[in-house]
């Protein structure tokens, strides 16, 4: 266990995935170190979502290795990787719509503590699950909404609930797939501050289009274009890189609409 704490949380080695002629992951190497926020940026269609899916376990790479906490998990299921300590949020909120906000988080707490099994005791009145879930909701500032159905939440609140469910798993590594999408400037500032405060708890791989958030949060940035990582380095290095400017940032400044 000590080894896994010293080594990288996530290590991708030579990951390849093609859909027909399209190389979505083209020899990807990437690490996330303990206590680090590693941001992954790139234009739409660069293969970021494919990469997230390969890390989370939804897609199997054609070649290469995914290592989590020092362990080769390439063939593992989504659920097995989650149990190992991988939390994630989805680009499009993925919640249990018919459950209340509290019950969504309670399900996450339950998943971490006992899984599916427990056939008799009423889950709604489970004081241990409730207390812990309310604690997590308090952290993201959703306590007021605990009893409401998810369908009644605003877009921004749903994003926060996604984060709460991931946190309830007490992950060692968080995959954040565009957490700021659609949040608006105030919401983005709040979530940025919140994520910055999480760094001591968990490492993060952050896929994000909002450059202010990326530059504020990231310890390292990797730039992905056409399935390849074309540059990787500190914020200052990436800002200074001519190649990145040309391939990505330059485009963005000329066409801020995306």
């Amino acid at each position: 266990m000590t080894d896994s704490l010293l080594g990288p949380l996530l290590e991708l080695q030579g990951l390849r995935k093609a859909f027909g002629a399209l190389k979505a992951s083209d020899d990807i190497d990437l690490t996330v170190l303990p206590g680090e926020i590693h941001a992954l940026i790139g234009p739409n269609g660069a293969g970021k979502s494919t990469l997230i899916a390969e890390i989370a376990g939804g897609l199997t790479p054609d070649a290469g290795q995914v290592r989590l906490f020092g362990q080769d998990v390439t063939g593992w299921s989504v659920a097995a990787r989650a149990r190992l300590g991988l939390g994630r949020t989805f680009q499009v909120s993925s919640l249990v719509m018919e459950f209340s906000v509290l019950r969504n988080v309670m399900l996450a707490v339950q998943a971490r503590s006992s899984g599916a099994f427990g056939f008799w005791a009423p889950v709604r009145r489970d004081a241990r699950l409730r207390t812990e879930a309310l604690g997590v909701l308090d952290r993201v500032g959703l306590t007021r909404r605990a009893g409401d159905p998810v369908s009644a939440l605003s877009h921004g609140e749903r994003r926060l609930l996604e984060v709460a469910m991931a946190l309830a798993l007490r992950p060692k590594l968080l995959l954040l797939d565009e957490p700021m999408a659609g949040l608006g400037p105030a919401g983005t500032r709040e979530l940025t501050a919140f994520l910055a405060g999480l760094k001591t708890e968990t490492g993060m791989l952050l896929v994000e289009h909002d450059m202010d958030a990326v530059f504020a949060l990231a310890d390292r940035i990797s730039v992905m274009v056409y399935g390849r990582i074309i540059a990787s380095g500190s914020v200052a290095e990436i800002r200074a890189s001519a190649e990145v400017r040309e391939a990505y940032l330059g485009d963005l400044h000329e066409a801020p609409s995306c």
Partner: peptide, 21 residues
């Protein structure tokens, strides 16, 4: 029960259930 909560999530959003472990 806890099992029932997991089963309902499996019906409504199986991907979410897997993501929770």
């Amino acid at each position: 029960s806890r099992f029932g909560a997991a089963l309902q999530c499996a019906r409504m959003n199986p991907e979410r259930l897997a993501t929770l472990g």
